[in-house]
């Protein structure tokens, strides 16, 4: 089966053959492609990027993302979880707002430091 690797801009066209328990991947220019293809066939994962509500007037929403990939079928579960989240702390870029979502080992982190008061 053919797929396009989405790990980096190269977008290598991969061919995956499954023979029982053996998965062969060809077409990748780097090892990440093989890892991606195997994951796609067994348990596809994705990173999720979105925003969360805050109590701060200057930033009604703050951008966040998962700092790794979660199972693809958990994307909307995560969105539902974050729907109810309201940030009331001024956190730094990179700080986690939720840890180990769905026992994936992946955190949800802030991707902007805009809430931090600037020192003038």
């Amino acid at each position: 089966m053919n797929l396009v690797c989405i790990v980096c801009p190269n977008g290598c066209r991969l061919t995956v053959t499954i023979d029982g328990e053996d998965i062969t991947v060809t077409g990748q220019k780097c090892p990440k492609g093989k890892t991606y293809a195997i994951a796609e066939m067994t348990e596809p994962k994705r990173s999720v990027t979105t925003t969360v509500r805050t109590v701060f007037e200057e930033a009604p929403v703050l951008p966040v993302r998962t700092n790794g990939e979660i199972p693809k079928d958990k994307i909307f579960d995560l969105m539902k979880l974050l729907d109810g989240f309201v940030l009331n702390k001024r956190i730094k870029r990179g700080e986690a707002i939720l840890r180990n979502v769905f026992d994936s080992g992946v955190d949800v982190i802030a991707t902007s430091g805009m809430l931090m008061k600037e020192e003038t």
Binding site: S47, T49, P63, R65, T111, S112, G113
Partner: peptide, 22 residues
Amino acid sequence: CIHDGFGLIRFKEKLSGPEYVE
């Protein structure tokens, strides 16, 4: 641009837009 995919070449990381520019 809060989605990721920024900086794969520059930083070898998959960052969101705000992270990259900050």
